[in-house]
Design a protein around this nucleic acid. Structure first.
Lengths: 343, 343
DNA sequence: TTGTAAGCGTTATCAA
DNA sequence: TTGATAACGCTTACAA
């Protein structure tokens, strides 16, 4: 059927004049094989251009060296298109996993049954779930009994799940505090529902906390809840514009929102940051693209991806070092041009 | 070893009181199985929650239902981070492949040997290669004898490779023609090296052709070659600025370049499009984010991803319908605000 | 229509 | 230190 029958450990065993077991031993560095036979085997592998078959290994050991990255969208394309964040995360995550010999496949939002079938039929060794899924999915995942890493999730479903998060509250606090330090007193907030998760709430809480600590009033009129998309920001900007005299600054729970707001405000002839200072959260690439460039809270997607991978690998190797409940990634303020000092 | 030994076709065969072959038959809809036994088998599968093991199927049939998307970067993260385009493509491509039961894994730039090993050990059924790879890779791929789809590549390596491209020349022609129709006569060009491939050349050719057909002079002083990145565009903007009186418009071979140029020009206090009209190519999401929003040539990443998948599936099914050399995706002009009519 | 059994490429147990 | 051999879960001649 296939072109040139592939060479198996039997072939190389025959050539080297040994048993297939010995071949397997030298491949895996297990068992004790004399230097001499080892050399013969190695030479045979060389000659024949032997390539081990991962599929057979998987069938035999149950280890597929395959890990899934799951996104809470019906189509993964939805995620990748609307938010470059997912692509970047995938890139960094994959990079680390590949080093350890794992390949990544992408999963999307499916019902619990489908999900279970998929994971089992592929013999996936682990899954990282970004953002919030319906709770029945977590139950299903738990039953699977494989390595799980949750990213950007505050809800706790199982002590077996490892968590990677960003310091959302602290970041938002710092963003708000920065505005206050720049002399702003009337500061609004635009929150989105990022995956419907508590991430957004935490960012709101950070904002609130900064206001309180500085004895500033919260004016609920100036707190907006919208979809965390460019279009969401674009749309709410009209409303913002009509209240623009009542605030001097606004904090956005996501860059993509801020970008939409700024875009529309520009269109409406408002000057940023002269008429309104704006800070974002995330520091996506596009934050640099716009004018004025967006002052924002940087979260390292690289770190997120890398730590997710390391946490995963730790579990896969079953030599879990630290059993910490969650890894929290620090944020930092990136000052660009969307905030005016009005002191 | 594993929790609860998984149920195999033997288990369900026993329960149903038939042979494992019959079970396999009903799973695959092959062979003739009487309605009666079929029902018994189905019931047993139901009861036990049977889930077929893809790994075993692969080992037995050689079909892994796994396809690779390969990116010409050392780290795939490089691609995903610098250019949201790759993530979007992945999303759309994957969506179609999943419908047909294939999962996708990501490949990067490796040497030919590594590449071959990877593909063979995973029993990949096909690969799509986006952009230009070193030629030894193509030789290696050809030897593999699996389904191959080349995206955005003009060089032809093998008649066995299917090609998906965008009408780069035509798009660029239209962009330039649009400027001319708006009254522009002195039109510059900024080209990047997109994967070092001929894509960029084609876009240049389209620009040239429009100039020629309209008896406009090409002034080589106003043709720039830079890296196709935001920073590339940002950097060249100073130079552009110093010649801004000599041109009224400029066409950029990629949106991301145009965005960098506009960003810097804004910073330098130049008014776009009053002082300089700019058109891009690609229509990435960020083209809408900036102000003024970028007038550009739209290429449908969705179509690209979809057609790549369909072409791949066609080959995998070995019922290749049309043996066309290449699929060319049409482009369209998206008029936004970065071009001024000066007639 | 159904069953038997070999084969896919490994690993790993148990003897030798 | 080595070699037979069963096992992993499925497909598929071939025989019944």
């Amino acid at each position: 059927m296939r072109n040139h029958k592939k060479v198996s450990i039997y072939d190389i065993a025959k050539i080297a004049g040994v048993s297939s077991a010995s071949v397997s031993y030298v491949i895996n560095g297990k068992g004790k094989v004399s230097q001499e036979t080892k050399q013969r085997i190695l030479k045979a592998m060389e000659q024949t251009g032997y390539i081990p078959d991962t599929t057979a290994v998987t069938l035999s050991t149950g280890k597929s060296h395959l890990v899934a990255l799951c996104l809470p969208f019906k189509d993964a394309s939805e995620a990748f298109v609307n938010n470059p964040f997912y692509g970047e995360f995938l890139g960094y995550f994959e990079k680390e996993m590949i080093k350890e010999g794992y390949d990544i496949i992408i999963g999307s939002l499916m019902d619990a049954n489908e999900f279970t079938r998929w994971v089992k039929s592929r013999n996936l060794e682990g899954i990282v779930m970004m953002g919030l899924f319906p709770s029945e999915i977590y139950e299903a995942v738990q039953k699977l009994g494989i390595a799980v890493v949750l990213v950007d999730v505050y809800e706790s479903y199982s002590p077996a799940f490892k968590n990677i998060r960003v310091d959302d509250k602290g970041g938002s606090y710092n963003a708000t505090k920065y505005l206050i330090d720049c002399g702003h007193q009337n500061i609004g907030f635009i929150g989105g529902n990022i995956n419907n998760s508590l991430v957004d709430d935490m960012r709101y809480v950070g904002y609130l906390q900064a206001l309180e600590e500085n004895h500033l009033n919260l004016d609920n009129k100036h707190v907006y809840k919208i979809p965390a998309t460019f279009d969401g920001g674009y749309a709410i900007a009209e409303e913002i514009a009509s209240h623009i005299d009542e605030m001097t600054a606004i904090v956005c729970a996501a860059d993509i929102i801020a970008i939409g707001v700024i875009r529309r405000l520009n269109e409406l002839g408002h000057k940023i940051p002269d008429e309104l200072s704006i800070v974002g959260f995330d520091d996506i690439q596009a934050a640099r693209y716009i004018y004025p460039a967006l002052t924002t809270i940087h979260q390292s997607i690289r770190e997120k991806g890398r730590l997710s991978a390391l946490t995963m690998i730790n579990q896969l190797n079953e030599n879990v070092k630290v059993d910490q409940e969650a890894v929290v990634i620090k944020t930092s303020l990136v000052v660009r041009q969307s905030v005016k000092n009005i002191k």
